[in-house]
Design a protein around this nucleic acid. Sequence first.
RNA 1: CGGGGUGUAGCGCAGUCCGGUAGCGCACCUGGUUUGGGACCAGGGGGUCCCAGGUUCGAAUCCUGGUACCCCGACCA
Length: 492
Amino acid sequence: MGKEIPSRSEDYSLWYNELVKRADLAEHSDVRGCMVIKPYGYSIWEKMQQALDKMFKDTGHVNAYFPLFVPKSMFEAEEQNAEGFAKECAIVTHYRLKNDPDTKGKLIVDPEAKLEEELVVRPTSEAIIWNTYKKWIQSYRDLPILINQWANVVRWEMRTRLFLRTAEFLWQEGHTAHATADEAVKETIQMLDVYAAFAEEFMAMPVIKGRKSEGEKFPGAVDTYCIEAMMQDGKALQAGTSHFLGQNFANAFNVQFAGKDGKLDYVWGTSWGVSTRLMGALIMAHSDDDGLVLPPKLAPIHIVIVPIFRSDDELEKITEKADQLSAALRKQGFSVKFDNRDTHKPGFKFAEWELKGVPVRIAIGPRDLENGTVEVARRDTKEKQVMKLDEVETKIPALLDDIQRNIFQRAKAFRDSLVTKVDAFEDFKRVLDEKGGFVLAHWDGTKETEAAIKEQTKATIRCIPLDAVEENGTCVYSGKPSVRRVLFARAY
RNA sequence: CGGGGUGUAGCGCAGUCCGGUAGCGCACCUGGUUUGGGACCAGGGGGUCCCAGGUUCGAAUCCUGGUACCCCGACCA
Protein backbone atom coordinates (compact mmCIF):
# COMPACT_ATOMS: atom_id res chain seq x y z
CA MET A 1 0.00 0.00 0.00
CA GLY A 2 1.42 3.35 -1.04
CA LYS A 3 1.41 6.28 1.28
CA GLU A 4 -0.66 8.86 -0.49
CA ILE A 5 -3.98 8.62 -2.26
CA PRO A 6 -4.27 10.45 -5.59
CA SER A 7 -5.30 14.09 -5.18
CA ARG A 8 -8.75 15.36 -6.05
CA SER A 9 -7.41 17.96 -8.44
CA GLU A 10 -5.30 15.45 -10.35
CA ASP A 11 -7.97 12.83 -10.93
CA TYR A 12 -11.22 13.06 -9.04
CA SER A 13 -12.53 9.64 -10.09
CA LEU A 14 -9.30 7.94 -9.15
CA TRP A 15 -9.25 9.79 -5.83
CA TYR A 16 -12.77 8.55 -5.09
CA ASN A 17 -12.10 4.94 -6.06
CA GLU A 18 -8.85 4.78 -4.13
CA LEU A 19 -10.36 6.41 -1.09
CA VAL A 20 -13.23 3.94 -0.96
CA LYS A 21 -10.78 1.06 -1.07
CA ARG A 22 -8.04 2.47 1.11
CA ALA A 23 -10.39 3.63 3.85
CA ASP A 24 -11.75 0.08 3.98
CA LEU A 25 -15.26 1.05 2.97
CA ALA A 26 -15.80 -1.34 0.07
CA GLU A 27 -14.17 -3.23 -2.77
CA HIS A 28 -15.13 -4.84 -6.03
CA SER A 29 -16.23 -8.43 -5.70
CA ASP A 30 -15.68 -11.09 -8.33
CA VAL A 31 -19.35 -10.80 -9.17
CA ARG A 32 -19.92 -8.49 -12.10
CA GLY A 33 -21.10 -5.06 -11.03
CA CYS A 34 -21.42 -6.04 -7.38
CA MET A 35 -19.37 -4.79 -4.47
CA VAL A 36 -18.43 -6.03 -1.05
CA ILE A 37 -19.24 -3.48 1.64
CA LYS A 38 -16.52 -3.98 4.24
CA PRO A 39 -17.09 -3.74 7.99
CA TYR A 40 -15.94 -0.12 8.33
CA GLY A 41 -18.10 0.99 5.41
CA TYR A 42 -21.04 -1.06 6.59
CA SER A 43 -20.86 0.43 10.06
CA ILE A 44 -21.35 3.88 8.52
CA TRP A 45 -24.35 2.55 6.59
CA GLU A 46 -25.70 1.11 9.84
CA LYS A 47 -25.42 4.55 11.43
CA MET A 48 -27.40 5.97 8.54
CA GLN A 49 -29.98 3.22 8.85
CA GLN A 50 -30.41 3.81 12.56
CA ALA A 51 -30.97 7.54 12.15
CA LEU A 52 -33.33 7.14 9.19
CA ASP A 53 -35.24 4.28 10.77
CA LYS A 54 -35.92 6.39 13.84
CA MET A 55 -37.14 9.24 11.66
CA PHE A 56 -39.47 6.86 9.80
CA LYS A 57 -40.84 5.44 13.04
CA ASP A 58 -41.28 8.94 14.46
CA THR A 59 -43.46 9.80 11.47
CA GLY A 60 -45.68 6.76 12.02
CA HIS A 61 -44.16 4.18 9.71
CA VAL A 62 -43.53 0.52 10.42
CA ASN A 63 -41.11 -1.94 8.81
CA ALA A 64 -42.06 -5.05 6.85
CA TYR A 65 -40.45 -7.25 4.23
CA PHE A 66 -41.62 -8.26 0.75
CA PRO A 67 -40.16 -10.83 -1.66
CA LEU A 68 -37.05 -10.38 -3.78
CA PHE A 69 -38.75 -12.06 -6.74
CA VAL A 70 -41.64 -10.64 -8.69
CA PRO A 71 -43.50 -12.76 -11.28
CA LYS A 72 -43.18 -11.13 -14.68
CA SER A 73 -46.94 -10.73 -15.12
CA MET A 74 -47.15 -8.91 -11.80
CA PHE A 75 -44.19 -6.76 -12.66
CA GLU A 76 -45.64 -5.62 -15.98
CA ALA A 77 -49.04 -4.65 -14.54
CA GLU A 78 -48.13 -0.98 -14.16
CA GLU A 79 -46.95 -0.29 -17.69
CA GLN A 80 -45.00 2.91 -17.22
CA ASN A 81 -43.05 1.45 -14.34
CA ALA A 82 -42.41 -1.85 -16.10
CA GLU A 83 -41.21 -0.12 -19.26
CA GLY A 84 -38.97 2.18 -17.31
CA PHE A 85 -37.11 -0.66 -15.65
CA ALA A 86 -37.39 -3.32 -18.37
CA LYS A 87 -33.90 -2.73 -19.75
CA GLU A 88 -32.14 -3.34 -16.47
CA CYS A 89 -33.89 -6.34 -14.97
CA ALA A 90 -32.29 -9.60 -13.91
CA ILE A 91 -34.60 -12.54 -14.58
CA VAL A 92 -34.80 -15.98 -13.01
CA THR A 93 -35.82 -18.57 -15.58
CA HIS A 94 -34.90 -21.89 -13.91
CA TYR A 95 -34.97 -23.37 -10.46
CA ARG A 96 -32.46 -26.21 -10.62
CA LEU A 97 -28.93 -27.13 -11.69
CA LYS A 98 -27.67 -30.58 -12.48
CA ASN A 99 -24.35 -32.31 -13.06
CA ASP A 100 -22.99 -31.72 -16.51
CA PRO A 101 -23.03 -35.16 -18.21
CA ASP A 102 -20.13 -34.06 -20.45
CA THR A 103 -17.80 -32.52 -17.84
CA LYS A 104 -17.26 -34.07 -14.46
CA GLY A 105 -17.47 -31.61 -11.58
CA LYS A 106 -19.35 -29.00 -13.59
CA LEU A 107 -22.96 -27.96 -13.29
CA ILE A 108 -25.41 -26.93 -15.97
CA VAL A 109 -28.86 -25.40 -15.86
CA ASP A 110 -31.37 -28.23 -15.90
CA PRO A 111 -33.45 -27.58 -19.02
CA GLU A 112 -36.30 -29.54 -17.47
CA ALA A 113 -36.45 -27.13 -14.56
CA LYS A 114 -37.70 -24.14 -16.50
CA LEU A 115 -40.13 -21.95 -14.58
CA GLU A 116 -43.68 -21.70 -15.84
CA GLU A 117 -43.36 -17.97 -15.42
CA GLU A 118 -40.12 -16.02 -15.16
CA LEU A 119 -39.32 -14.18 -11.96
CA VAL A 120 -38.00 -10.64 -12.12
CA VAL A 121 -35.47 -9.76 -9.44
CA ARG A 122 -36.98 -6.58 -8.00
CA PRO A 123 -35.48 -3.33 -9.28
CA THR A 124 -38.03 -1.73 -6.91
CA SER A 125 -41.01 -3.24 -5.12
CA GLU A 126 -44.12 -1.29 -6.08
CA ALA A 127 -45.57 -4.24 -8.00
CA ILE A 128 -45.37 -6.91 -5.32
CA ILE A 129 -46.38 -4.43 -2.64
CA TRP A 130 -49.46 -3.08 -4.41
CA ASN A 131 -50.41 -6.63 -5.31
CA THR A 132 -50.30 -7.33 -1.56
CA TYR A 133 -52.02 -4.11 -0.50
CA LYS A 134 -54.97 -5.14 -2.63
CA LYS A 135 -55.62 -7.96 -0.17
CA TRP A 136 -55.21 -5.71 2.83
CA ILE A 137 -57.47 -2.86 1.81
CA GLN A 138 -61.25 -2.95 1.72
CA SER A 139 -62.40 0.18 3.49
CA TYR A 140 -61.17 3.63 4.45
CA ARG A 141 -60.71 2.11 7.91
CA ASP A 142 -57.76 0.11 6.52
CA LEU A 143 -56.01 3.31 5.48
CA PRO A 144 -53.49 4.73 5.62
CA ILE A 145 -50.89 1.99 5.31
CA LEU A 146 -47.47 3.37 6.18
CA ILE A 147 -44.82 0.73 5.50
CA ASN A 148 -41.09 0.85 4.95
CA GLN A 149 -38.77 -1.96 4.01
CA TRP A 150 -35.00 -2.25 4.21
CA ALA A 151 -33.93 -4.37 1.27
CA ASN A 152 -31.60 -5.06 -1.59
CA VAL A 153 -32.61 -4.42 -5.18
CA VAL A 154 -30.99 -5.24 -8.52
CA ARG A 155 -30.64 -2.98 -11.53
CA TRP A 156 -28.41 -4.40 -14.25
CA GLU A 157 -26.26 -1.35 -14.86
CA MET A 158 -23.92 -1.12 -17.82
CA ARG A 159 -21.38 0.89 -15.96
CA THR A 160 -20.88 0.64 -12.23
CA ARG A 161 -19.04 2.62 -9.58
CA LEU A 162 -18.54 1.72 -5.93
CA PHE A 163 -21.56 2.92 -3.94
CA LEU A 164 -22.75 5.30 -6.66
CA ARG A 165 -24.06 2.71 -9.06
CA THR A 166 -23.83 -1.03 -8.55
CA ALA A 167 -25.91 -3.85 -9.97
CA GLU A 168 -27.14 -4.81 -6.52
CA PHE A 169 -27.55 -2.16 -3.86
CA LEU A 170 -29.05 -1.71 -0.44
CA TRP A 171 -31.78 0.78 0.28
CA GLN A 172 -35.00 1.44 2.05
CA GLU A 173 -38.25 1.89 0.20
CA GLY A 174 -41.31 3.35 1.81
CA HIS A 175 -44.69 2.45 0.31
CA THR A 176 -47.79 4.15 1.61
CA ALA A 177 -51.46 3.96 0.72
CA HIS A 178 -54.00 6.72 1.41
CA ALA A 179 -57.67 7.55 1.07
CA THR A 180 -57.14 10.97 -0.46
CA ALA A 181 -54.80 12.59 -2.92
CA ASP A 182 -54.19 15.40 -0.50
CA GLU A 183 -53.01 13.05 2.22
CA ALA A 184 -50.70 11.19 -0.18
CA VAL A 185 -49.17 14.44 -1.41
CA LYS A 186 -48.59 15.52 2.19
CA GLU A 187 -46.87 12.19 2.86
CA THR A 188 -44.68 12.62 -0.21
CA ILE A 189 -43.54 16.04 0.93
CA GLN A 190 -43.16 14.95 4.54
CA MET A 191 -40.73 12.20 3.55
CA LEU A 192 -38.84 14.56 1.27
CA ASP A 193 -38.44 16.79 4.32
CA VAL A 194 -37.24 13.82 6.37
CA TYR A 195 -34.59 13.09 3.76
CA ALA A 196 -33.48 16.71 3.61
CA ALA A 197 -33.26 16.86 7.40
CA PHE A 198 -31.26 13.65 7.49
CA ALA A 199 -28.87 14.86 4.81
CA GLU A 200 -28.25 18.17 6.51
CA GLU A 201 -28.29 17.18 10.17
CA PHE A 202 -26.56 13.81 10.02
CA MET A 203 -24.57 13.80 6.80
CA ALA A 204 -23.79 17.53 7.16
CA MET A 205 -24.59 17.78 3.45
CA PRO A 206 -26.70 20.68 2.22
CA VAL A 207 -29.40 19.71 -0.28
CA ILE A 208 -31.86 21.45 -2.54
CA LYS A 209 -35.40 20.14 -2.47
CA GLY A 210 -37.31 20.12 -5.68
CA ARG A 211 -39.63 18.43 -8.11
CA LYS A 212 -38.41 16.45 -11.11
CA SER A 213 -39.31 17.37 -14.66
CA GLU A 214 -41.49 14.97 -16.66
CA GLY A 215 -38.41 13.57 -18.33
CA GLU A 216 -36.57 12.87 -15.09
CA LYS A 217 -39.36 11.56 -12.90
CA PHE A 218 -39.81 8.00 -11.64
CA PRO A 219 -41.67 5.82 -14.15
CA GLY A 220 -45.13 5.21 -12.76
CA ALA A 221 -45.20 8.34 -10.60
CA VAL A 222 -47.39 11.39 -11.04
CA ASP A 223 -44.77 13.57 -9.40
CA THR A 224 -41.24 12.86 -8.23
CA TYR A 225 -39.59 15.02 -5.61
CA CYS A 226 -35.90 14.85 -4.83
CA ILE A 227 -33.04 16.22 -2.83
CA GLU A 228 -30.03 17.25 -4.87
CA ALA A 229 -26.52 17.59 -3.43
CA MET A 230 -23.32 19.09 -4.85
CA MET A 231 -20.09 17.12 -4.93
CA GLN A 232 -16.62 18.65 -4.72
CA ASP A 233 -15.97 18.19 -8.43
CA GLY A 234 -18.95 20.38 -9.30
CA LYS A 235 -21.26 17.53 -10.28
CA ALA A 236 -24.68 17.10 -8.74
CA LEU A 237 -25.90 13.94 -7.09
CA GLN A 238 -29.49 12.93 -6.48
CA ALA A 239 -29.46 11.83 -2.88
CA GLY A 240 -33.06 10.76 -2.33
CA THR A 241 -36.44 10.65 -4.04
CA SER A 242 -40.05 10.74 -2.90
CA HIS A 243 -42.85 9.94 -5.31
CA PHE A 244 -46.52 10.83 -5.42
CA LEU A 245 -47.91 7.83 -7.30
CA GLY A 246 -51.44 9.14 -7.69
CA GLN A 247 -53.76 6.20 -8.33
CA ASN A 248 -51.47 4.63 -10.91
CA PHE A 249 -50.58 1.50 -8.98
CA ALA A 250 -54.03 1.22 -7.42
CA ASN A 251 -55.44 1.23 -10.94
CA ALA A 252 -52.92 -1.30 -12.18
CA PHE A 253 -53.55 -3.67 -9.28
CA ASN A 254 -57.20 -2.81 -8.79
CA VAL A 255 -56.81 -1.60 -5.23
CA GLN A 256 -60.10 0.01 -4.22
CA PHE A 257 -61.58 1.01 -0.90
CA ALA A 258 -65.09 1.88 0.29
CA GLY A 259 -65.32 5.42 1.62
CA LYS A 260 -67.56 6.64 4.43
CA ASP A 261 -70.25 7.24 1.84
CA GLY A 262 -69.99 3.63 0.69
CA LYS A 263 -68.61 4.55 -2.72
CA LEU A 264 -65.62 2.71 -4.12
CA ASP A 265 -62.51 4.65 -5.08
CA TYR A 266 -58.95 3.80 -6.00
CA VAL A 267 -56.27 4.18 -3.34
CA TRP A 268 -53.67 6.94 -3.52
CA GLY A 269 -50.04 5.98 -3.14
CA THR A 270 -46.52 7.20 -2.43
CA SER A 271 -43.10 5.63 -2.46
CA TRP A 272 -39.75 7.01 -1.33
CA GLY A 273 -36.21 5.76 -1.02
CA VAL A 274 -32.59 6.37 -0.26
CA SER A 275 -29.78 3.92 -0.93
CA THR A 276 -26.17 3.07 -0.21
CA ARG A 277 -25.51 5.74 -2.81
CA LEU A 278 -25.63 8.08 0.16
CA MET A 279 -22.25 6.59 1.11
CA GLY A 280 -20.84 7.96 -2.14
CA ALA A 281 -22.44 11.32 -1.44
CA LEU A 282 -20.99 11.42 2.05
CA ILE A 283 -17.51 10.69 0.75
CA MET A 284 -17.60 13.16 -2.11
CA ALA A 285 -19.18 15.95 -0.10
CA HIS A 286 -16.54 16.24 2.61
CA SER A 287 -13.40 14.19 2.17
CA ASP A 288 -9.99 15.58 1.24
CA ASP A 289 -6.64 14.46 -0.15
CA ASP A 290 -5.68 12.91 3.20
CA GLY A 291 -8.74 10.69 3.27
CA LEU A 292 -12.26 10.53 4.61
CA VAL A 293 -13.81 13.32 6.61
CA LEU A 294 -16.77 11.94 8.52
CA PRO A 295 -19.39 13.98 10.33
CA PRO A 296 -19.37 12.91 14.00
CA LYS A 297 -23.03 11.85 13.85
CA LEU A 298 -22.20 9.12 11.33
CA ALA A 299 -18.63 8.25 12.37
CA PRO A 300 -18.26 4.66 13.66
CA ILE A 301 -15.37 5.87 15.83
CA HIS A 302 -15.65 9.36 17.29
CA ILE A 303 -12.31 9.56 19.05
CA VAL A 304 -9.09 7.65 18.63
CA ILE A 305 -6.47 7.77 21.37
CA VAL A 306 -2.88 7.27 20.22
CA PRO A 307 -0.23 6.61 22.88
CA ILE A 308 3.31 7.83 22.30
CA PHE A 309 5.78 5.70 24.18
CA ARG A 310 9.31 4.37 24.22
CA SER A 311 9.10 1.71 26.87
CA ASP A 312 6.55 -0.77 28.16
CA ASP A 313 6.64 1.17 31.37
CA GLU A 314 5.59 4.37 29.59
CA LEU A 315 2.85 2.58 27.69
CA GLU A 316 1.52 1.22 30.95
CA LYS A 317 1.26 4.67 32.51
CA ILE A 318 -0.34 6.11 29.37
CA THR A 319 -2.76 3.19 29.17
CA GLU A 320 -3.96 3.95 32.67
CA LYS A 321 -4.79 7.55 31.71
CA ALA A 322 -6.25 6.49 28.36
CA ASP A 323 -8.52 3.92 29.95
CA GLN A 324 -9.88 6.47 32.40
CA LEU A 325 -10.45 8.95 29.61
CA SER A 326 -12.08 6.33 27.35
CA ALA A 327 -14.44 5.29 30.11
CA ALA A 328 -15.47 8.88 30.78
CA LEU A 329 -16.07 9.54 27.08
CA ARG A 330 -17.92 6.28 26.46
CA LYS A 331 -20.18 7.11 29.38
CA GLN A 332 -21.27 10.14 27.38
CA GLY A 333 -22.14 7.90 24.44
CA PHE A 334 -19.05 8.36 22.32
CA SER A 335 -17.26 5.58 20.50
CA VAL A 336 -13.60 5.55 21.51
CA LYS A 337 -10.71 3.54 20.07
CA PHE A 338 -7.44 3.19 21.97
CA ASP A 339 -4.82 2.33 19.37
CA ASN A 340 -2.17 0.68 21.52
CA ARG A 341 -0.55 -1.35 18.76
CA ASP A 342 3.19 -1.54 19.33
CA THR A 343 3.79 -2.53 15.73
CA HIS A 344 3.30 0.92 14.26
CA LYS A 345 4.73 4.34 15.01
CA PRO A 346 2.50 7.24 16.01
CA GLY A 347 2.94 9.03 12.69
CA PHE A 348 1.67 5.98 10.86
CA LYS A 349 -1.37 5.78 13.12
CA PHE A 350 -2.12 9.49 12.68
CA ALA A 351 -2.17 9.06 8.92
CA GLU A 352 -4.24 5.90 9.09
CA TRP A 353 -6.98 7.34 11.29
CA GLU A 354 -7.06 10.46 9.18
CA LEU A 355 -7.56 8.25 6.13
CA LYS A 356 -10.50 6.67 7.91
CA GLY A 357 -12.00 10.02 8.83
CA VAL A 358 -12.11 9.71 12.63
CA PRO A 359 -13.26 13.17 13.74
CA VAL A 360 -11.06 13.58 16.83
CA ARG A 361 -7.63 12.23 17.71
CA ILE A 362 -6.11 12.42 21.16
CA ALA A 363 -2.37 11.82 21.52
CA ILE A 364 -0.87 11.10 24.94
CA GLY A 365 2.90 10.99 25.40
CA PRO A 366 5.50 11.24 28.18
CA ARG A 367 5.42 15.06 28.05
CA ASP A 368 1.66 14.97 28.56
CA LEU A 369 2.04 12.68 31.54
CA GLU A 370 4.37 15.23 33.12
CA ASN A 371 2.17 18.20 32.33
CA GLY A 372 -1.25 16.62 32.85
CA THR A 373 -2.21 17.38 29.24
CA VAL A 374 -3.12 15.70 25.95
CA GLU A 375 -2.88 16.78 22.32
CA VAL A 376 -6.26 16.99 20.62
CA ALA A 377 -6.46 17.10 16.82
CA ARG A 378 -9.61 17.57 14.75
CA ARG A 379 -9.93 15.87 11.37
CA ASP A 380 -11.97 18.53 9.57
CA THR A 381 -9.43 21.36 9.90
CA LYS A 382 -6.42 19.30 11.05
CA GLU A 383 -5.89 21.82 13.85
CA LYS A 384 -4.18 20.62 17.01
CA GLN A 385 -4.46 21.98 20.51
CA VAL A 386 -3.07 21.04 23.89
CA MET A 387 -5.77 20.40 26.45
CA LYS A 388 -5.69 19.80 30.19
CA LEU A 389 -6.38 16.11 30.70
CA ASP A 390 -9.09 16.78 33.25
CA GLU A 391 -10.88 19.14 30.83
CA VAL A 392 -11.03 16.72 27.94
CA GLU A 393 -14.20 14.89 28.84
CA THR A 394 -16.13 18.13 29.19
CA LYS A 395 -14.68 19.79 26.09
CA ILE A 396 -14.97 16.89 23.63
CA PRO A 397 -18.76 17.01 23.21
CA ALA A 398 -18.60 20.68 22.20
CA LEU A 399 -15.68 19.94 19.89
CA LEU A 400 -17.60 17.18 18.13
CA ASP A 401 -20.61 19.46 17.78
CA ASP A 402 -18.35 22.10 16.33
CA ILE A 403 -16.89 19.64 13.82
CA GLN A 404 -20.36 18.54 12.75
CA ARG A 405 -21.39 22.18 12.31
CA ASN A 406 -18.16 23.18 10.59
CA ILE A 407 -18.36 20.37 8.05
CA PHE A 408 -21.88 21.39 7.16
CA GLN A 409 -21.02 25.09 6.93
CA ARG A 410 -18.02 24.36 4.76
CA ALA A 411 -20.05 22.16 2.43
CA LYS A 412 -22.81 24.75 2.31
CA ALA A 413 -20.44 27.62 1.53
CA PHE A 414 -18.94 25.50 -1.24
CA ARG A 415 -22.35 24.54 -2.61
CA ASP A 416 -23.63 28.12 -2.47
CA SER A 417 -20.55 29.29 -4.36
CA LEU A 418 -21.49 26.83 -7.09
CA VAL A 419 -25.03 28.05 -7.70
CA THR A 420 -24.97 30.43 -10.64
CA LYS A 421 -27.85 32.32 -12.20
CA VAL A 422 -27.54 32.64 -15.95
CA ASP A 423 -29.78 34.16 -18.62
CA ALA A 424 -27.92 33.53 -21.86
CA PHE A 425 -27.21 30.09 -23.33
CA GLU A 426 -23.59 31.09 -24.01
CA ASP A 427 -23.15 31.83 -20.30
CA PHE A 428 -24.94 28.59 -19.47
CA LYS A 429 -22.40 26.55 -21.40
CA ARG A 430 -19.44 28.59 -20.19
CA VAL A 431 -20.42 28.28 -16.51
CA LEU A 432 -20.84 24.53 -16.85
CA ASP A 433 -17.48 24.13 -18.53
CA GLU A 434 -15.41 26.54 -16.50
CA LYS A 435 -17.02 26.52 -13.09
CA GLY A 436 -19.38 23.57 -12.85
CA GLY A 437 -22.00 23.25 -10.17
CA PHE A 438 -25.66 24.20 -10.33
CA VAL A 439 -26.99 26.62 -12.89
CA LEU A 440 -30.26 28.39 -12.25
CA ALA A 441 -31.89 29.30 -15.51
CA HIS A 442 -35.28 29.88 -17.05
CA TRP A 443 -36.82 26.97 -18.94
CA ASP A 444 -39.86 26.97 -21.17
CA GLY A 445 -41.17 23.78 -19.62
CA THR A 446 -40.99 21.61 -22.75
CA LYS A 447 -39.28 18.27 -22.96
CA GLU A 448 -37.85 19.24 -26.35
CA THR A 449 -35.87 22.07 -24.78
CA GLU A 450 -34.82 19.85 -21.89
CA ALA A 451 -33.54 17.22 -24.34
CA ALA A 452 -31.77 19.77 -26.52
CA ILE A 453 -29.96 21.27 -23.55
CA LYS A 454 -28.93 17.83 -22.36
CA GLU A 455 -27.73 16.94 -25.83
CA GLN A 456 -25.61 20.05 -26.17
CA THR A 457 -24.29 20.48 -22.65
CA LYS A 458 -24.64 17.11 -20.84
CA ALA A 459 -26.52 19.02 -18.17
CA THR A 460 -29.92 17.84 -16.98
CA ILE A 461 -32.68 19.51 -15.05
CA ARG A 462 -31.92 18.33 -11.53
CA CYS A 463 -35.14 19.75 -10.18
CA ILE A 464 -37.57 22.58 -10.08
CA PRO A 465 -36.69 23.92 -6.62
CA LEU A 466 -39.58 24.04 -4.19
CA ASP A 467 -38.48 27.48 -3.06
CA ALA A 468 -38.12 28.83 -6.61
CA VAL A 469 -39.32 32.41 -6.78
CA GLU A 470 -41.96 33.24 -9.34
CA GLU A 471 -40.40 35.65 -11.80
CA ASN A 472 -41.05 36.35 -15.43
CA GLY A 473 -38.18 35.54 -17.75
CA THR A 474 -37.30 33.91 -21.02
CA CYS A 475 -36.06 30.37 -21.53
CA VAL A 476 -32.28 30.23 -21.66
CA TYR A 477 -32.46 28.00 -24.73
CA SER A 478 -35.63 28.81 -26.68
CA GLY A 479 -36.30 32.37 -25.57
CA LYS A 480 -39.91 31.48 -24.85
CA PRO A 481 -41.60 32.83 -21.71
CA SER A 482 -40.90 31.21 -18.35
CA VAL A 483 -42.19 31.93 -14.86
CA ARG A 484 -39.41 30.48 -12.73
CA ARG A 485 -35.82 29.31 -12.84
CA VAL A 486 -35.00 25.61 -12.63
CA LEU A 487 -31.83 23.92 -11.45
CA PHE A 488 -29.50 22.46 -14.06
CA ALA A 489 -26.25 20.54 -13.56
CA ARG A 490 -24.10 17.77 -14.85
CA ALA A 491 -24.83 14.90 -12.54
CA TYR A 492 -23.77 11.49 -11.30
C1' C B 1 -23.99 -1.59 -25.25
C1' G B 2 -19.98 1.37 -28.62
C1' G B 3 -14.63 3.48 -28.40
C1' G B 4 -9.94 3.33 -25.68
C1' G B 5 -6.90 1.21 -21.77
C1' U B 6 -5.49 -2.40 -18.18
C1' G B 7 -5.13 -7.56 -15.89
C1' U B 8 2.24 -10.30 -13.58
C1' A B 9 3.23 -11.94 -5.13
C1' G B 10 -1.66 -9.07 -0.34
C1' C B 11 -1.29 -3.77 -2.84
C1' G B 12 1.09 -0.57 -6.71
C1' C B 13 3.89 -1.54 -10.98
C1' A B 14 8.28 -2.99 -14.64
C1' G B 15 9.10 -6.93 -18.03
C1' U B 16 5.32 -8.00 -23.57
C1' C B 17 7.39 -4.38 -29.19
C1' C B 18 12.12 -8.22 -30.38
C1' G B 19 9.69 -15.85 -27.20
C1' G B 20 14.84 -18.53 -23.65
C1' U B 21 15.98 -19.28 -15.28
C1' A B 22 9.73 -13.97 -13.31
C1' G B 23 11.64 -8.80 -11.20
C1' C B 24 11.10 -3.89 -8.29
C1' G B 25 8.70 -0.82 -4.35
C1' C B 26 5.33 -1.23 -0.34
C1' A B 27 3.16 -4.86 2.80
C1' C B 28 4.35 -9.72 5.36
C1' C B 29 7.89 -13.07 8.68
C1' U B 30 12.65 -13.26 12.03
C1' G B 31 16.39 -10.53 14.87
C1' G B 32 18.19 -5.88 16.53
C1' U B 33 17.98 -0.61 17.09
C1' U B 34 13.69 2.85 17.15
C1' U B 35 8.73 5.53 18.65
C1' G B 36 5.58 13.70 19.68
C1' G B 37 3.62 13.13 11.68
C1' G B 38 3.69 7.31 7.40
C1' A B 39 11.37 4.49 11.22
C1' C B 40 16.14 1.98 10.00
C1' C B 41 19.61 -2.16 9.26
C1' A B 42 20.31 -7.33 8.28
C1' G B 43 18.15 -11.85 6.91
C1' G B 44 13.71 -14.49 4.97
C1' G B 45 8.95 -16.33 2.83
C1' G B 46 5.47 -15.69 -0.90
C1' G B 47 3.65 -16.45 -8.23
C1' U B 48 -2.26 -21.32 -11.89
C1' C B 49 2.04 -14.09 -15.08
C1' C B 50 -6.93 -13.11 -15.68
C1' C B 51 -9.20 -17.80 -18.11
C1' A B 52 -9.48 -21.39 -22.27
C1' G B 53 -7.58 -22.96 -26.74
C1' G B 54 -3.65 -22.51 -30.55
C1' U B 55 1.54 -21.66 -32.78
C1' U B 56 6.52 -23.25 -31.02
C1' C B 57 11.89 -27.44 -28.94
C1' G B 58 10.32 -23.52 -25.55
C1' A B 59 4.95 -18.52 -24.32
C1' A B 60 3.99 -13.47 -19.09
C1' U B 61 5.68 -12.25 -24.21
C1' C B 62 2.94 -14.28 -30.61
C1' C B 63 -2.41 -15.78 -32.50
C1' U B 64 -7.89 -16.76 -31.49
C1' G B 65 -11.89 -16.64 -28.19
C1' G B 66 -13.68 -15.46 -23.42
C1' U B 67 -13.73 -12.66 -18.80
C1' A B 68 -13.03 -8.71 -15.18
C1' C B 69 -11.89 -3.81 -13.95
C1' C B 70 -10.73 1.50 -15.24
C1' C B 71 -11.60 5.97 -18.50
C1' C B 72 -14.88 8.36 -22.34
C1' G B 73 -19.88 8.05 -24.49
C1' A B 74 -25.25 6.09 -24.49
C1' C B 75 -28.66 4.40 -20.34
C1' C B 76 -29.72 4.94 -15.25
C1' A B 77 -30.73 5.95 -8.20
